[in-house]
């Protein structure tokens, strides 16, 4: 292969590799959302429902990146509080982080 073509291909190759590494770096399910999912399971048991919590599960959309993970963890922390206000019969631990 001509030297100039080889050189021109190195840039794109490195970019693709770094992009693959970057997009492969997802976050893990956080403690606030683990607590929220557990609380929703208790709510389901109480109301005989089956809530779709797929976003918050370990494979869910929440954990595709750091930004989404932060938003989900904040929402889960407040979500447990909201559930307890909404459903007085519910008992869930809250406040993983202060």
């Amino acid at each position: 292969m001509h030297k100039s073509i080889r050189q021109a291909l190195w840039g794109p190759l490195l970019f693709v590799l770094s992009g693959s590494i970057w997009t492969g770096c997802g976050a893990e399910q956080g403690p606030e959302c683990r607590a929220f999912v557990a609380c929703v399971a208790k709510l389901d048991a109480l109301k005989l429902t089956q809530t779709n919590v797929s976003r918050f599960l370990p494979e869910g959309a929440c954990w595709g990146g750091d930004k989404g993970a932060r938003v989900c963890e904040s929402s889960c922390r407040r979500g447990v509080v909201q559930l307890l206000v909404q459903e007085p019969l519910l008992s869930c631990p809250q406040g993983v982080t202060p």
Binding site: A8, G11, F15, V16, A61
Partner: peptide
């Protein structure tokens, strides 16, 4: 000259790899 070729190649690839329909 070499550096500019690398940058140009990288930019073109980024357009192909980070296409709008793949960005969530």
């Amino acid at each position: 000259h070499k550096l500019s070729r690398w940058l140009l190649g990288g930019m073109l690839t980024s357009l192909l790899v980070l296409r709008g329909d793949n960005a969530l």
